[in-house]
Simulated scan of single mutants.
Amino acid sequence: MAQLVYLKENIKYFYQKHSEYAEPALKLLFSLVMLCLVQSMFQYNETVNRPWLFLIVSAAQAFLPLSFCFYSAACLILLNLWQVSVEIFAVFLLFFVICYLLFVRVDGRHAFIIILTPILFYLKMEYFLPVLLGMTAGFSGILPMAAGILIYFFSLYTKDASALLTTTENLDPGIGMSRIASLMVIDRKLLVILVTFCLVVFVSAILYQMFHEKAWMFAIIIGNISLAVLLLFGRLIFELDYTIWRVFLEIVLAMGVATVVQFFKGIGDFSRIEKVTFEDDEYIYFVKAVPKIKAAQEERNVTDIVAPEEEQAETEETDTEQKTGDGMNEF
Rank of each mutant, 00 (worst) to 15 (best):
S72L: 02
L199V: 11
F153L: 13
H110A: 11
P173L: 11
S182Y: 04
Q39E: 11
F286L: 14
F54G: 00
E9M: 08
L93N: 06
F202C: 11
F68S: 13
Q297V: 14
P24T: 04
D319M: 15
F154L: 15
L79T: 10
L199C: 09
P308K: 13
T167F: 02
F264A: 04
Y15L: 13
N10T: 10
L232P: 00
L93Y: 05
V290P: 03
E317H: 12
L129P: 00
Y283V: 13
L132A: 04
Q43G: 06
S162G: 05
L94P: 01
I175S: 07
P144H: 07
V302A: 03
V229G: 00
V86N: 14
I221Y: 03
F54Q: 05
Q312M: 13
F264P: 07
E46N: 13
R179G: 00
H110C: 13
L191I: 09
I175P: 00
V247Q: 08
M145S: 04
E316Y: 07
L249W: 08
F154R: 08
G141F: 03
E317D: 10
M125E: 07
I222R: 08
D187H: 02
E20D: 10
A25L: 12
I186A: 08
G325V: 09
P291V: 10
R105F: 03
F63S: 12
V195L: 15
K17P: 07
A289P: 05
L76D: 03
F96I: 08
G266Y: 04
S67M: 14
F54D: 02
E316S: 09
D281K: 15
L143P: 01
E309W: 06
L165V: 06
P144W: 08
E314A: 13
V260R: 09
L199H: 00
V57T: 10
M217P: 00
D281W: 06
L191N: 03
L76C: 07
S40F: 08
I186L: 11
T136N: 13
A295E: 05
D319Y: 10
F233V: 14
M184W: 07
T167A: 12
N49Q: 14
I142D: 00
I119N: 01
A254D: 01
W245H: 13
L230H: 05
F248Y: 09
R188S: 09
P308H: 08
C198S: 11
F95M: 12
L116Y: 02
V84H: 02
L78W: 04
T158A: 10
L66W: 09
S226F: 05
P291Q: 11
V97F: 11
K288N: 09
E20M: 14
D160Q: 15
L150H: 05
V306L: 12
M1Y: 10
L129S: 08
P51S: 08
N170V: 06
W216P: 01
D269A: 05
F218C: 09
G141E: 03
E87I: 12
F63Q: 07
I251F: 02
F63L: 13
F248S: 07
M34W: 00
I151L: 12
F197W: 04
E310Y: 10
F92D: 06
G223L: 03
L164E: 04
A137L: 10
L207F: 01
L164F: 03
V185W: 03
S182K: 15
M41E: 01
S72Q: 02
E169D: 07
Y21N: 11
F238P: 03
A22H: 01
V5W: 04
V192C: 05
C75G: 12
